[in-house]
Design a binder for these strands. Structure first.
Length: 202
DNA sequence: GTACTGATATGCT
DNA sequence: GCATATCAGTACC
């Protein structure tokens, strides 16, 4: 499989979001290689999207990286305890991003299990196995993604995405937990792979 | 399986 | 001060 290149990311968040489904997110560190298949995403369309951190052109230390060209990560901390990973898309000064909401664990399950529960994979209950990476905060823990990876270039070798040609149906639905976003909360900007058991929520 | 609660960084008013 | 792009633990079906 081939690593996705810069041009893949330099399009609107909605286009990139749909095409990210089924692709492999890879994190290499300290001799570990963790891989998860992207099964659920949400598009955040920047300036015009009330749900986006960059709505109305808001620009702070936290949101700065979204103003870069596509192909970088935007990692932010939420509720004081958890991280969420986004993929920055589009061009410079167009602050769009795709939130990764769920992964299917592919490689490095033992390491993911230790990152999440401090236990080996064999010791996990069925419930814990299913919950390894099926939510934005959970997958960050499992993949060992934190603030130090904010602004990381996905065209490097530390964190990147592999292409994958797989056929599946894409389900369109409303985004999660953005009730404050008025009319924007009803936009169908959340996409997931139909029938995959590792997505976060109906 | 659902319902409730608490943890607490960042940016806004 | 207050709200948020969340999750785990507990209690109860």
């Amino acid at each position: 499989m081939k690593k996705l290149e810069r041009n893949f990311y330099k399009r609107s968040a909605i286009e990139v979001a749909k095409e990210l489904l089924g692709k492999y997110l890879v994190h290499e560190y300290k001799g570990n290689k963790l891989i998860g298949k992207i099964v659920e995403v949400e598009a955040y369309m920047g300036i015009e999207d009330k749900a986006a951190h960059s709505y109305g052109g808001r620009r702070t230390v936290r949101t700065e990286v979204m103003y870069k060209e596509g192909g970088y990560t935007y990692v932010f901390q939420i509720y004081g305890m958890y991280y969420c990973v986004n993929i920055v898309t589009s061009e410079v000064d167009i602050p769009q991003a795709v939130l990764i909401r769920a992964l299917e664990p592919i490689e490095g399950l033992e390491e993911m299990s230790r990152n999440r529960y401090k236990k080996s994979y064999e010791e996990l209950t069925a419930y814990q196995k299913k919950n390894l990476t099926n939510g934005p905060g959970k997958l960050c823990l499992a993949m060992n993604i934190d603030k130090t990876l904010n602004g990381e270039d996905l065209c490097n070798d530390r964190l990147y995405i592999l292409d994958n040609k797989e056929k599946f149906n894409i389900v369109y639905s409303k985004r999660i937990n953005i009730d404050y976003a008025e009319e924007a909360k009803d936009y169908l900007w959340r996409f997931y792979i139909e029938g995959n058991r590792y997505f976060s929520k109906k």
